[in-house]
Design a protein around this nucleic acid. Structure first.
Length: 152
DNA sequence: GCCAACGTTGGC
DNA sequence: GCCAACGTTGGC
């Protein structure tokens, strides 16, 4: 029983948030491309989150600098592998594909003003480009974005 | 191993 | 465009 519970916990999807400046790589570009390699991450914490991602995990797609809002949900379609842009250093990349756009994008201002979301890493670790999201935060943002949780 | 200098991110 | 936050680098 204990082993089963543990197994379920490990197998359960984790939730993440990935950031991009729309002028560099926008959500609309991901939709057009169908999938992309999430590479170029050069921060150890962010890299470790990439390595913890599993195929099927959901990622909020956040537009930094312009927009400053969560605009969609992406899905991990290939787990971490050596970043081809890493020039021999120990960096990682994953592949992601679009799942669906939020009907109502959730802005940073709204997140800061919402008690249940005010401790998201988007607020507390604003410079981190790959973040983890709790199950409660995941649900709350999807509800505010007027979308249902993606199926695996 | 400390810490000052520096570079980058990203909100405002 | 400014600047605060903060991760990284390098001198000692």
């Amino acid at each position: 029983m204990r082993a089963l519970v543990y197994h379920r916990a490990v197998a359960a999807a984790s939730h993440w948030l990935i950031k991009s400046e729309p002028s560099v790589y926008a959500w609309s570009k991901l939709v057009k491309d169908g999938k992309t390699r999430w590479d170029g991450v050069r921060n150890f914490t962010a890299r470790n989150y990439l390595r913890a991602m599993k195929v099927g995990d959901g990622c909020f797609f956040y537009h930094s600098n312009e927009g400053k809002e969560i605009v969609g949900v992406a899905r991990v379609c290939r787990a971490a592998y050596p970043d081809p842009t890493g020039e021999g250093a120990d960096w990682s990349a994953v592949d992601v594909e679009p799942d669906h756009a939020l009907v109502a994008p959730v802005s940073l201002a709204t997140i800061k003003a919402t008690a249940a979301l005010a401790s998201m890493q988007l607020v507390t670790h604003s410079r981190l480009s790959v973040q983890c999201v709790t199950a409660a935060e995941w649900k709350a943002v999807l509800a505010m974005g007027k979308t249902k949780a993606p199926r695996r």
